[in-house]
Amino acid sequence: MKTSLQFFKDMGVCDGAYAVLERVFGQAGVTEFDYAQGYQLMLGMMDQLEVDAAQSGEPGHDTAQGWLQWCYDLRNRPEAIMYFGDHIEEDLFRTADGHLHETLEAARAHDRSRYAELRRDHAAARVINGVRFDEGGAETWEVVDPAQDDLAGFDAFVWHDSTTGLNHRTDSAADAVAFNASQAEILDAIDAAERAARVERRIIDESGVFSVWLCSSCSAATPAKV
């Protein structure tokens, strides 16, 4: 990963550290510095860095360790890896469940499949049976939809509560309606989770040493002053 003085400025380096970097670049007689090489060079300047950092007065950057931590974190910032535009967008995509895919289409298909499975499991778990008693006390069960069916003709209602693992029985139609409504909220949550699901693509720097995962539909974040 390449660096330059403008790179560090745009990444939001503090003024004290920037002054040190100016000296390092000047003494080396270069306008660009390899990140890994520069980081090792900074490690060999700890005593001088400690003196310069103490004079900065900036919280978090008033110690050499604070400066080094900021520099270390650069390797995990997408905007740093992508700064010069020579990064590589790999054909490797990651869904939120940690699965890796070779194409964006495969990743999205995987997400569609897993959320469809969640809906199927949910549908199986929210079945409500309406119960009718005959004159001899025998029961007839019928799957009902409280959102659409007339429940007035049923004597009881039975469903499996997936949250407790137990069957629930009630003679109250209101209880059945309430259970159905709560299950609809779960379905809404599954739908919301699918809409928010991110597919990330692996981005590597031109050297192939440093990599980050970046939302496939996102651009690099704007550098922030630290």
Rank of each mutant, 00 (worst) to 15 (best):
E90Q: 04
C14K: 11
R169S: 03
H122E: 01
I81Y: 10
P78A: 13
A125K: 06
D10Q: 11
Q27N: 11
F179E: 10
G12T: 05
R202N: 07
D191C: 12
T164V: 00
T140H: 01
T170C: 06
G26T: 07
V177L: 03
H99K: 11
H87A: 02
F157A: 07
Q48A: 11
E22G: 07
V143H: 04
L104M: 05
S56E: 10
L104P: 00
E79F: 07
G130P: 05
R23F: 13
F25D: 15
D111C: 08
G85L: 07
A176R: 15
K2V: 12
G29T: 00
S4A: 15
T31E: 14
P146T: 00
I190Q: 13
D10S: 03
I203F: 13
L100W: 11
D155I: 06
I128E: 03
M1D: 14
L151Y: 01
H87F: 01
V209H: 14
E139V: 05
D34T: 04
V199I: 15
A17P: 04
A125G: 02
A123M: 01
A152D: 05
R195S: 09
A116F: 14
C215P: 14
T164Y: 04
K2R: 15
Q148W: 03
H87Y: 05
Y35I: 00
G208P: 04
L43Q: 11
Y39E: 14
L166Y: 07
P59F: 06
L151C: 00
S182H: 15
M82T: 04
C218Q: 09
D52S: 08
E142C: 09
S211T: 13
D161M: 07
R195A: 15
Q6M: 12
D10R: 11
M11F: 14
A173F: 09
S56V: 10
A152Q: 05
E79S: 11
R201Y: 10
A125I: 04
E50I: 08
G60E: 04
W213N: 13
D121C: 09
R126T: 06
V144D: 03
A17M: 15
S219K: 14
G29S: 05
V199Y: 13
D73R: 12
A147Y: 02
V13G: 09
L104A: 04
F210Y: 12
